[in-house]
Design a protein around this nucleic acid. Sequence first.
DNA 1: GGGCGTTGTGGCAATTTGGCCAAGCTCGAC
DNA 2: GTCGAGCTTGGCCAAATTGCCACAACGCCC
Lengths: 107, 107
Amino acid sequence: MRQPMTKTESAPRNRLDFRQQARVLKALANEARLMIVDKLMEGECSAGALTKLVGLDASTVSKHLAVLRSHGIVEDRREGSTVYYRLLTPCVASFFNCASEVINREK
Amino acid sequence: MRQPMTKTESAPRNRLDFRQQARVLKALANEARLMIVDKLMEGECSAGALTKLVGLDASTVSKHLAVLRSHGIVEDRREGSTVYYRLLTPCVASFFNCASEVINREK
DNA sequence: GGGCGTTGTGGCAATTTGGCCAAGCTCGAC
DNA sequence: GTCGAGCTTGGCCAAATTGCCACAACGCCC
């Protein structure tokens, strides 16, 4: 699927890889989507509950969830009429830690 | 500097924190800026060299660098007429790893 | 069947992003 | 001083983002 990647020196080197990575980053770079991902780190959650959490219009949240889904960050599971979402790549937690570090440093 | 942070439960919980974190993420969520950050992981580099690397107009790259600077991700140092940039928060390397993981999973 | 609760989709307006060109600024050399 | 190299800033414009509303689609219960 891709070479083992021991550390970071086998990181991407061509434009296409950077473009793909930027897409993933962009999918996370939004206040509402970060709230959703943060919540999903506790476990799966329904679209309705997530809507209540972020406090935006249900249609807006649905689109945010579609973004996360289409980028392989979350997965959905239907049960009756409600749809449950869960995190597909838990490593996104590291984003929160690093972002916090940047924020703290800049004060 | 920061409380131990055992797991992720001491992560942000209010809108303001999420908004700040989203700003940091957004500052990184761009092909050109990712290329710059990736290059700076090797060590400091001049604005001119970075411009050649990303292959865009010098003014465009300068603005990208301004974005990274204003978000506390890089720092600059003047030496004569050339400006050297270097990474301020090395943890951004984790972004590359996680983004790669997401990308690999979605194939 | 009809109605309700839960999600997703289409359309639209306001804002932000990202590129270029042109012009400016600041060094250092002449 | 003037010139040029190196970098930044302002203006402009096309494209993407993000929110809302209205409505469609689906499942469940009466």
